[in-house]
Design a protein around this nucleic acid. Structure first.
Lengths: 153, 153
DNA sequence: ACTGAAAATAAATCGCA
DNA sequence: TGCGATTTATTTTCAGT
């Protein structure tokens, strides 16, 4: 996997800000002609620096305005419990992110719901029903200060 | 702001998965002809259901593989302290998200760095130097189970 | 409101310097 | 690598249902 030069970084910055830029426009912005620009983009895609392109949807407007950070502790960290837990939360549309944490070997989820009732529903119908879940702690966000769709280069 | 029908939801799903779909291809996939499809996309953009389009960059490959959840407590929640804190973290490229939390009225950040040294640097050079920061607690992620680029509809 | 077609633009591709 | 012409898509517009 080759190193990235200044042109590559410019390409990534431009495409992160506008994923629908045409080759011509992109070439103009980074100051390179069309052919090498397109070639570089292909390489960045192949080497997975660019994983895909997507519309940025309004999370609040579409799914709800409440973000809840949920800390989940499992009773035991057996393979099957872990696999089932991760598989289940990945399928839940409410779950926007999930990390396995150090320390007590628990999970940190961010769940987005439209109101407290929906959250309660998610908690009782989904989360607590996953086998091996020992403890759940919920922390509510009052305000979203920042969510970056892509890392800043 | 009008309600979304099944076609609108299909459009959002398709564009979330591939933001560079052409009108023709999108129309084909949702089962509507070109003209109304394009009109609907414009409307979804205008009404901010679609906030933009972006390349999905590989966070791990580009900025680092360590995600740290940082809980920050402020000494007092005065306007100026809050404004300065939020302004500063928004400018940090390491900070991927920031939420104002209920409870102790502190912040929950996700910071991505390439190694522990970088994290230490961020902590001492940036975070602890913001006026009004009283307490910082760091929790490290061992594994990223899931980060959804867009909400699931 | 949606369809279908036609016209005008723009983009990807490929040979060549 | 970079340039430019050809081929191919894509967007826009308009008349019709």
């Amino acid at each position: 996997m080759s190193e990235l030069d200044q042109f590559d970084l410019k390409i990534l910055r431009e495409l992160a800000a506008d994923g629908r830029l045409s080759g011509r426009e992109l070439a103009e912005r980074i100051g390179l002609s069309l052919t090498p620009t397109v070639r570089r983009v292909r390489r960045l895609e192949e080497e997975q620096y660019i994983q895909g392109y997507g519309a940025q949807l309004n999370e609040q407007q579409l799914v709800g305005s409440i973000s809840v950070f949920v800390s989940v502790t499992l009773e035991k960290q057996s393979e099957s419990v872990i696999a089932r837990f991760e598989g289940t939360v990945t399928k839940c549309p409410e779950v926007m992110s999930c990390f396995l944490m150090s320390g007590d070997a628990d999970y940190n989820l961010r769940v987005v719901v439209k109101d407290l009732e929906s959250y309660h529903h998610f908690l009782t119908r989904t989360l607590t029903r996953i086998p091996g879940v020992a403890h759940i702690k919920s922390s509510f966000a009052l305000k979203t200060v920042l969510i970056r769709p892509a890392p800043l280069l």
